[in-house]
Design a protein around this nucleic acid. Structure first.
Lengths: 339, 339
DNA sequence: CTGTTAGCGCATTCAC
DNA sequence: GTGAATGCGCTAACAG
């Protein structure tokens, strides 16, 4: 391994001078600078980050804690986060918590040990607060994305759950639906709670009854049990049976449509489906599900930007909150065909 | 920051004893061990990785260099890589090269500086060899995935490009196609070359002519220029115009189908399409494109496994090569409807 | 403009 | 079974 001492010896200067050249700090004669730089190139010297970090307490490593990179929402978040990080000279550590508090906690410990400069985190659920507090204890800045956590004073990038949900539900109501079901994620996740609250509020606002039998919990992962929820609802008496389903996440929406079709239900004729979150259109065909598409890339990009500003002390003291609107794309899964 | 000295002082032992407890090394009386552990928990001590790395030259950080996490193939690779890394107690650094040699090179330098223990890399193209040699120079083990590079003696996880391409082309031939086009990625990428070679070989094997006008280059990124390639082919005289297209990657296939449909060409009636790489089925509907689906998760998972074995010296000296077969899913985009 | 000294937090080496 | 000294590669603080 080539060290500054190797460079120093070969250039007939002290290690300190080499260090100054590398960091462009202090003042150095043009001549020594060039001489040192030439030797650095010649020997292919690359500074040792561990040694630097030991002194500076900075690693130039940022971390992204998400629940699952396989979820297209987070894939795009990750890409946005990485782009901004790279642009600002940071590297990105990737962590998938799988909505699991213990796994998240283990990661947090590893991140603290490695000495990450900051964490962009979509917390697993409300209990993540404990994990996040640990970051605070170690003076590691963090920015919350997607999922709010109560009483945590920090920068955040959130979705406008209230408005977006209301617009999705009102779209269904406008289509004539009166029995609208919700298949949601666990209520210990802020987005799930907010979406459910907005769902109830919107129904009431329009004089519609909130029926407990039409409210179901699933999860955010790919192997959720949406089918169970739908089965139960299909066994309800005709008068209660839903004519529309509000899926609070992409995977839930996809699986709902799949399950309905497998069970010979026509979408949207028998049951309409709308969905929070879009999915990339990888098919040659038209997208099918009516969806509230989020600017996921910007969750990562803007979140990282705030995080870096926090780290580099260029941010205002006050915690900032960015609320990103979703775009509602009305598609076949919720439009009654006229005849 | 809590250090081993804080623990040592509080436990009335030397720092060395604390270090021994943490690393389970040397021999320590059960009593001291328990006392020290209690204080470690009490103070919430977490070892400083920088200090450790400075001595051990190990960081417990592995890196994944891919071209773009947004490509579903690599999303899944990343997930596989991360799962294996985490399972073995490593963290994962994510790098998107965007098929760009300079960006890749910059990342490699950053990784060397940080001191990654190993790199799982899908090289941007043949010129990546120079970047990879740099890893060798710094004694950083690496494993190649997806894209072979000539004269690089190392573990690799590759796709069976020859067999898979042949089966895709033969499927088209069996459907009666004689004028089969290929829209490929740049030929400085091994997979592109191998797929093109197999495409030509298979045509010849079946007594079909290889027409240069039906061979086009695009790229692996999402904003490729597939439309240009197709436009040109549509302007060919009727006798040359292709009745089928072999897209050598998922994005190329998707865009080909999109462009054809936008231009009032029926798929598969006017032009059939087959594609190397699958895409996740996020629609409620049936998948449409005939595709050779790769076990992408395993590219990451098995690649990481080999990398870790290399790092931990549990691998045989000989470089290993894993060739993963793809599964061909025949779908509507290439099946002539009988009437 | 340049060099010397000291120390970041930890583990290796050698004593006891 | 335990401790003291030393150094990993680098840079802050000071000296010249």
């Amino acid at each position: 391994m080539v060290t500054i001492y190797d460079i120093a010896k070969k250039a007939n200067v002290s290690a300190m001078t080499v260090s100054r050249v590398i960091n462009n700090s202090g003042s150095i004669s043009q001549k020594t600078k060039e001489k040192v730089e030439a030797i650095i190139n010649e020997l292919g010297y690359i500074p040792n980050s561990s040694a630097r970090s030991l002194i500076s307490k900075k690693t130039k490593i940022l971390s992204l804690m998400i629940t699952d990179i396989s979820n297209p929402f987070f894939t795009s978040v990750a890409r946005g986060a990485e782009d901004k990080a790279m642009q600002m000279g940071y590297q990105l550590m990737l962590c998938n918590s799988d909505e699991n508090i213990e796994k998240e906690s283990k990661y947090i410990d590893m991140l603290i040990s490695t000495g990450t400069d900051g964490v962009l985190i979509a917390p697993a659920n409300d209990s993540s607060k404990k994990n996040i507090r640990k970051l605070t204890k170690f003076n590691i800045p963090f920015v919350l994305i997607d999922r709010h956590i109560k009483d945590l004073d920090c920068d955040q990038v959130l979705s406008d759950n209230e408005t977006t949900t209301r617009r999705l539900i009102e779209h269904l109501i406008n289509q004539g639906h009166k029995k609208i079901a919700i298949i949601n994620a666990p209520l210990d996740v802020a987005t799930a709670r907010e979406r459910q609250q907005a769902y109830c509020d919107t129904l009431k606002l329009h004089g519609l009854e909130v029926n407990e039998n039409l409210i179901h919990q699933s999860n955010f992962l790919q192997d959720n049990d949406v089918s169970e929820a739908i089965k139960k609802m299909m066994e309800l008496p005709e008068t209660e049976r839903p004519t529309a389903i509000f899926a609070t996440s992409n995977f839930i929406g996809i699986d709902a449509v799949k399950f309905l079709k497998e069970n010979k239900k026509n979408v949207p004729e028998d049951v309409a489906v709308v969905c929070y979150d879009g999915v990339p259109n990888y098919t040659g065909s038209e997208p099918f599900i009516t969806a509230a598409e989020q600017p996921s890339y910007n969750f990562g990009y803007l979140g990282m930007q705030m995080l870096i500003e926090r780290i580099e002390n260029t941010a205002p003291k006050m915690p900032r909150k960015i609320v990103l609107p979703a775009e509602i794309h009305v598609r076949k899964s919720s439009i009654q065909l006229l005849d």
